[in-house]
Design a protein around this nucleic acid. Structure first.
Lengths: 135, 135
DNA sequence: AAATATTCTACTTATTCGATAGACTTATAG
DNA sequence: CTATAAGTCTATCGAATAAGTAGAATATTT
């Protein structure tokens, strides 16, 4: 299940993508339009900014704006920042790989190959969809 | 990310499938072999029993055993019991449908159709894999 | 200086997870 | 019948996280 954080993040990015580049938008505007708690959205937008998706302008006339082209922002990239690994198991994660502590080995683990398939099927969608698809 | 509960549940079911039908296996045996906390496994197995996957025998010579053919037990069915909805959003869930409280409508929600794709791609794997594939 | 709007820090509540403890009940063997 | 085995049931715990919120500090423009 997608967290509120990720969902709101994607909605906010989409809203900003619709607004056009270098067009600061108030947090409060997005929050109101998209039914999101302003303070929670604030934290999400800051996280997105720190990870290179957005820039912001403080003070009068300020706000957040997109700094990447919508078609260059895959859902997968946003997902990883806001949600974490796309893979169902740490041992099948491409970006956050970790060994499982309860399995003897990945070769012997029957779940492993299935979860690779799930990961790839999920990635198939997320890597190929961008903000442009959300506008 | 798959919960320990679901992962352990699948591992235990696989272990029992390997053991053969109507062959009671001690919780402690599975726990030891699969590196699972015995008491936690106990709760998981009971849940699986209550949902029709297993049966148990109490007392001497007792234990749990599979009551369905391995090829009849899809990963999806186990997943739903132990993990919950496969879908990323409540509004795209086939089994646990609920309206989202922050979206105006499903038609207007750009995320909706993408999450349907993700759901379907994920289901593709889970519905088509069974315990037989895990043995 | 005042107004605006982000940034920062901290807190709250609720829930769930994963694990664990202990008692109770059921079934079998001797 | 007793002892043992093994599931069933009930409850608790600590940690982590999610989602939300409060308040203060900082930066920018007019």
């Amino acid at each position: 299940m997608l967290s509120k954080r990720t969902k709101y993040g994607l909605k906010a990015l989409t809203y900003l993508a619709k607004k056009g580049k270098n067009q600061p938008v108030l947090i409060s505007e997005i929050a109101t339009e998209e039914n999101i708690s302003k303070k929670f959205l604030e934290a999400i937008l800051l996280q997105l900014k720190k990870n290179g998706f957005l820039a912001s302008k403080m003070g009068k006339g300020g706000g957040y704006y997109l700094i990447k082209d919508p078609e260059k922002v895959s859902i997968a990239s946003v997902y990883r920042i806001l949600e974490g690994p796309i893979a169902m198991l740490p041992c099948v994660s491409l970006n956050y790989y970790e060994k499982c502590d309860d399995c003897k080995s990945e070769e012997e683990c029957s779940l492993h190959s299935i979860m690779i398939e799930v990961r790839d099927n999920t990635l198939e969608v997320y890597e190929n969809k961008t903000l442009l698809d959300l506008i």
